[in-house]
């Protein structure tokens, strides 16, 4: 018998005695009402992770991004990124090794989650392949205020599960040493979030 059939058989015989009537699943966690301004909550929660947050108008994105990056930083843009950034090159399929010597990457995002201060990238146009926002040490992530949703259930509700996703909440971090949180391990050690109002 194949492993597959044997495991499925074991599962079925394990459950022969079981009461298989469905258990009710509460759904009160969906559609919770959030008081106050979602974007402000998002800002506060992102900053809690020691990421920087800058708010600007649509026309100010290029300038804002440039100001966040030290002079002379090599910058790569995700293909299809909506705004132009002076001096930045659009990713042309750089390898991980090539990206390892790039200073910073600028991408968009699909969703911002206010309650948890999370950015979700789905790696379509403007967001780049997954490794793009991973290998360089600085990640600038630009999100429109209108993309900010209240909480995790709201985000799950709008995200397309067929897309690969990276949920980002602050710079990379570890709590592995005495459970003290340290920012910066393998992912970008610096995360700048720009919110376009």
């Amino acid at each position: 018998m194949s492993a597959r059939d044997e495991i499925l058989g074991r599962v079925r015989s394990a459950l022969t005695q079981a009461d298989r009537s469905p258990v009710a699943v509460p759904t009160t966690h969906r559609g919770r009402v959030h008081e106050g301004d979602l974007v402000e909550l998002f800002v506060e929660r992102v900053e809690d992770y020691r990421a920087t947050v800058t708010r600007c108008a649509d026309s100010e994105v290029a300038g804002t991004v440039s100001r966040l990056l030290p002079e002379g930083t090599s910058v790569v843009l995700a293909p299809g990124f909506e705004w132009s950034v002076p001096g930045a090159a659009v990713d042309s399929g750089l390898t991980a090794v090539q990206l390892d010597s790039v200073g910073a990457v600028v991408t968009g995002a699909t969703v911002g989650i206010a309650e948890t201060g999370t950015l979700v990238l789905t790696h379509g146009p403007g967001e780049g392949r997954r490794l793009l926002s991973l290998v360089p040490d600085v990640h600038v992530c630009v999100v429109r205020a209108s993309q900010v949703v209240a909480d995790v259930p709201a985000a799950i509700g709008v995200l397309d599960p067929r897309r690969p996703q990276t949920w980002i909440s602050g710079p990379s971090a570890t709590s592995d040493i005495e459970l003290d949180r340290v920012e910066g391990v393998h992912g970008p050690r610096t995360l700048h979030v720009v919110i376009v109002d």
């Binding site: 929660r45 790696h123 997954r130 599960p161 690969p164 990276t166 909440s169 992912g187």
Partner: peptide, 19 residues
Amino acid sequence: GERMNPYTSIWSGVTPGDG
């Protein structure tokens, strides 16, 4: 004990040209 962990990766099979 965080509101959200720094990174969550979600993928479904193979994404052409990515990963």
